[in-house]
Nucleic acid binder design. Structure first.
Lengths: 116, 116
DNA sequence: ATCAAACTTAGCCATATCGCTAAGTATCAC
DNA sequence: GTGATACTTAGCGATATGGCTAAGTTTGAT
């Protein structure tokens, strides 16, 4: 299997840009080619490509080229790992046993459902 | 009540630095003055101050000066809002009704427990 | 009154980021 | 094969980021 190690530096950096978050939201509705992802942004194509490569390096998306078009799709596993980090911090910060418990429960639930 | 509007740009940007995440983790164990937060980083104080101001502008921490020391504490509400955004995206990306349901349940739970 | 402690401000340097345009390369349609 | 389509690469400029040192400022202790 491919190694999956999310880098929080890259992930959060990628998420810090509204254009990229908009792209991710768009990808939530399904995989799309680069040009379609670019259209609503109004940005030049090289600029969009750059955003995409940031997202891909952060493993938030995966892309695949077929013919002359490149299809982009979201990678929920990375987002899940990120959500887990936040949830963990939240549990600690709130200092509440029930949140910690809920977090553990969710981890177990994922172990059951999240693996392919 | 004080206006609370989390800015995801600032938040994710703040979270993208490992030094700042380490500081947040440290604050999970309780409020501490600047110098104590600085010590484990090995960074110069002005550098640390800068990190702190980034965290504070993102509303991830709050600080309060008493005498000549400034005390820093975490702001779980902002982290919670961020976790919610991620959870929402995850629910969409995974395209699964049960995740969406779990998310809504959590929202309700927070509505019950999270308000001051 | 003096001195150390704990920030704080100002400013410098190196690198990274976000936008662009111009000029490639590689399909696909005819 | 000609031309259009869909990226891709190269490189520029403005601004932001993350580190530093040096020189304040404000308190607390003596």
């Amino acid at each position: 299997m491919a190694k999956f190690d999310p880098d929080l530096n890259l992930i959060f950096q990628a998420l810090s840009d509204p254009t990229r978050r908009a792209m991710l939201a768009r990808l939530g509705k399904g995989a799309v080619p680069v040009s379609e992802l670019a259209r609503p942004t109004g940005l030049a194509l090289p600029t969009v490509m750059r955003h995409l490569s940031v997202l891909e390096e952060a493993q938030l998306i995966a892309t695949e080229k077929t013919g002359r078009t490149r299809l982009c799709r979201a990678r929920p596993d990375t987002l899940a790992a990120t959500a887990d980090w936040l949830e963990e911090q939240r549990a600690i910060w709130e200092g509440r046993a029930d949140r910690l418990e809920a977090y553990v429960m969710k981890l177990m639930e994922q172990g059951d459902a999240g693996k392919s």
